[in-house]
Amino acid sequence: MAQTGSPSDRHADRPLSPHLQVYRLTFTFLMSGFHRVTGTLLYFGIVIFVWWLVAAASSPAYFDFVNALFGSWFGRLVLLGMTWLTIHHALGGIRHFIWDTGLGLDERERELLARLTMIGSAALTLLVWILAYLVRGG
């Protein structure tokens, strides 16, 4: 009988080695998964950025329309979310760079890095938005 599918698919009905369900949910585990989640949301969220660039290149009227959408309370909420996702993913990336050198891998350091990513992303997001509002006011 002809074989179909790749070798890895052919025995899909075999039990997999246990993964998600056997591990205790830890903060670092959650943050690791969150790096993928933020990456995926940014992957689709970049369309907002592309839309804005295309609007700027289209016409003043269309740009004003898109800018008004982004400036509405809902638009600002989305942009605030995008800011936080971007900074969170960036700090998560820095964490991976630290790990690439072999540092920061013991338990206390892992916890610390995860906490710093969390607190740092919130603080930097706030900073960016405070700056934006200062520029707008000034």
Partner: peptide, 8 residues
């Protein structure tokens, strides 16, 4: 994504 942004 790259082409639309780059064109703009």
């Amino acid at each position: 994504v790259a082409l639309f942004s780059a064109f703009a």
